[in-house]
Every structure is written in structure tokens, then in C-alpha cells.
Write a protein that binds this DNA or RNA. Sequence first.
DNA 1: TCTATATCACCC
DNA 2: AAACGGGTGATATAGA
Length: 571
Amino acid sequence: MRRFQEVWCIDFEFCAPDGERPEVLCLVAMELNSRRLIHCWRDQLSDKPPFNIGPYALIVAYYSSAEMNCFMALGWPMPENLLDLYAEFKCLHNGLLPISGYGLLGALTSYGIMSIAGSEKKEMRELAMRGGQYSSEERSTLLQYCETDVVALSKLLPRMHSTIDLPRALLRGRYMKAVAHMEWNGVPIDTETLQKLRLYWEDIKVQLVAEVDSAYGVYDGLTFKQSRFEAWLKLNDIPWPCHPSGALDLQDDTFKEMAKSYSVVGPLRELRVSLSGLRLNNLAVGRDGRNRCLLSPFRSKTSRNQPSNAKFIFGPSAWYRGLIKPKEGYGIAYIDYSQQEFAIAAALSNDPRMIAAYESGDPYLEFAKQAGAVPQNATKGSHPSERELYKVCVLAVQYGMGAERLSQRINCSVREAKHMLQRHRETYTIFWTWSDAALYFALTRNNLGTTLGWQISLSSSMKTSDRSLRNFPMQANGAEILRLACIFTTEAGITVCAPVHDALLIEAPIERLDEDIRRTKDFMQKAGEIVLEGFELRTDVDVVRWPDRYMDERGVDMWERVSRLVMNLAG
DNA sequence: TCTATATCACCC
DNA sequence: AAACGGGTGATATAGA
């Protein structure tokens, strides 16, 4: 901290309706050396911050993506150095489950710092979210509350600072700035179609149920009644698999299996699949037609973002992505890492055969070759089913799947599944030795971390499975890599609409799109090289130019089906 | 009628 | 004891 002449703890109050950019209400800031305190209601804020944000100043905040969004709303440049105590607290206590959570109050509790009650905080947030005009009394209440958070921060920092790894903390701070950019940009949505879907969805569902359920009578309105289904099964003399609890097993897989022997349940299955999902009402789309929501950085144990599935366009089934559509004159590109976790495993373990498999361009087929399951000259076209099996096997290993489950998954005997998993062990012995060592390290040190310092601590109260620990380096380093990619791209002025775990959605005017894709791919590769000591990750890209819409291949059928029904209903 | 739990759907 | 990593969220049913 010595290098900083000024250390400013800051907090904004703001109003941010679903899908909209924030509207700033007020700001409180405190400089820690001089204890200088600044209070500003929104009308007192000019076009630049009332404090130093240059190279010798440190800006400290809790969940700073919100503060950076406020900077953007005010047209302010972002601070050079940003320290986010939320990210740091989460990193330091990840896996330890602090009793009051990972919010500011949780952090304060955890360090024994007194502050306001959670109920009061909630009340104040509600007052801020109300928006509109505020009486002078309300203004001073909000400013006062805002100050309590700043005072809390000023107490929290000295308690935490000796345990903070500053260079890496500042890197996480840079990511929070990138998050603000992405939240600010949002994803372009075809609002006309969205509106129609919202308008007619209930009718579509009713129509679907009416058509299909007349033959079964198991629906009550739009809800599937387990008890009625049970009665229907009895009536038709169909034995149905049950859970250990005795309840019917209603998984789609079970329906699929049963439909093979009892074709009469087929249409019911299709109906259930169609009705599942569609929660368009919560999708957070602003008046400007952009899908915008909290990305919730660092929320998962592996530090991935965890935005709300209901609000985020990449949350629900893939067919919803048909709603993503660039505005006139623009194009978008979805750029994702090819087999990212496999590559990370290869790079970190330095397993030569695994590296060779990745570098072949088709790791799954190459694994099948290395395992002797297909001839050396096999191709994706000549051995599609074998490739698929070995693909599932690779993914199974990444998640620590056992032979039992794998055999169900690929429809083979347990013996055969065991054999496949065994071949993975034999083919990638170096990887397995490394994975064993990582697990041993984690269990003896009660801690496991990434190249750039994200860590999980093991506690007796929250036992972490071996499978989680073995998977951690892949997933958490993958998250680090994507964070770096977000930092590089946003700082270079590329419009990033959203991060999706191993992918970025970017947007550009059509004439600049190819150039921005090229630059993004370069940045993504560079990000991988930093975390993986020079290992080169590949990326794939899907490009869409106005007036086309984005379409995920898994969603084509459902999209077309829904579109047809909407068209009929709209007349 | 509300809440907790179980189960399921979906994503990477 | 079970054995698929990390998640969010809707829904059905059971229990208070």
C-alpha cells in the first residue's frame, strides 16, 4: 500500500431497474491517510471524480463492478488502481463458508467489526432502488447510509490488508472494471420477437397441452400432476421406474427409455420437454433492447461468474439465444475456447500425449486413436460414433465420473465403461500422476490455488469431494483465463457484451467486425499463455451479421416450432 | 397458505 | 454413504 499516496474508500447509491443502466444517486468517499470525507448528491457530481484516480491513488470498494458502472454512468474514466474487498474476501474465505455470507456485512462480521443491521441495509437499498425524486430528508438518510458503508470499508481494509496479495488483487480489480464494461454494454436483443413471445406464450402452452393431454388427462391446467400420471400408468398397466423414495422417476431420460417400450408415452414426453423452461418474463431487457444483468463475478467456488439464469440470456435453454440479434449496421461474434478444460489439463500436467491430442485439433478422436480404439487414419467422418464415445469419456474424466454412471450415459456395460476409463489412465499417465499430486497437495495443505492466486480452502465443516478438488485446477484456471481475456479486450476498446465461462460475445460495426474478432482471438490466446506458461489455446468463432439472428444449433427445432405457433396466433 | 425439500431442467 | 465438476431456478409435494 506504500506506493499509494492516496487511498480512497468509495461507495455509491444508485438505482438500477432490471435491464437498465444505473442512475447514480449519491457518492461518499473517504481518504484513509487524511481521513478527508466527501459527500455528494448526484447534482453535485461533475464530469470527473472529486478524488484522485491516477497511478498513485488506490480506489477501494466492495463489489466494485457497481461503482464502476456508476463511473460509466457519470462519464468518468475508470481508476488506474482498483481494490475490491469483495473479491479479496471471497478469495481468502472461499470454501470456509463465513457465517454471514460473502457480502459486506459478512466480511465485517467475520473480522468482528460492528456495523448496521442487515434489515437496515435492505431498507436503504430499497429506498435507492425506488428511484425518482428524493426529499431532502431521504437524501440525507441515503448519504448517511452510504457513509456507514464507507466507514465500514475503511475499517475492513486495515484488517485485511496484510493477507492481500496486492498485485493479484489489483488484477482482480481490473477484472471488475471489465465486468462494469460488459454489464454496461449488455447483449442486443430482438425485442419485437421477445414481446410477441411474451404475449403469446401462455396461449402456446395452453394449445400444446390441450392437443396432447386429451389422450392422458394428467395435466391440471398447465401443471403436470404426478398423482394423475400414476393413476394413468396403473390404468394402462405400465410399470414405471421409481426413485428410492418411492416417487416416480420423471427424468426425460426415463421418459425416453420408457417410450421405447411404451410408445404411447412419446407425445407426453415431447409435451413435457416443450413446456419446461420459458421464463421470459424475468429476462432483464432494458428500454434500449439490451439484456443486462449482474454478472456476479467470483461467485462460484472456482471464481466463475454466476449471473441469474432467469435474467441472463445465456442462462435458459439454448433456443432462447435466437433472441440475440445485432442492431442494424452491427455484427456479433461468439468466440469460445476449443475444449478449454482438456487443454488446461494437458498444459498444467505437461502430459505429452494429452498435449499431442489437443494439438491434433480433435482431442476426442486423437484419444480414440491413442487408446487403440480406431485406426490411425480415422477421421471424424469415418468413425463418428467412436469419437462420440471417447468424447463422453474425456468429459467424464474431467468431472470424475465413475464407470457405473458412464455406462448409463453411453449405454454400454459397466465392464466396458471401466475399460474406457482405464484406457484414459493408461494413455495419460502423466496427467493422472499430476492430478493425484494436486489432490494430495490440497488434502495436506487444506488449500488449492490457481496460477494467478484464486484459491479454495478446505474446512471440516464443508467437505470438498476428491472429484471437486481434481476438477478445480481446470475450472478455476479456466476462469482466470477468461478474466484476463475480458480485461485485455475491454481495455483495448472492444465491445464485449458478455462472458460465458469459456466464451465471449463481442459486438462491432460490420465493417470492423472481422478485425475485432481477430484481435479478440489474439487476446484470448494471450490470456491462455499467461496462465498456462506459454501454452497456446485455440478458439472457435460464430459470426452473425445484421439482419440475421444468433442461433445455437441445439435450439433450432424449438425455435422454429415456437416461431410457427407465434405466427399462427399473431394471425 | 406458506415454507422446506426433492427433483428436475438447463447452462459451461 | 455415494461416487458427475461448477452453477440457477422452477415446480411439485409434504409438512407446519
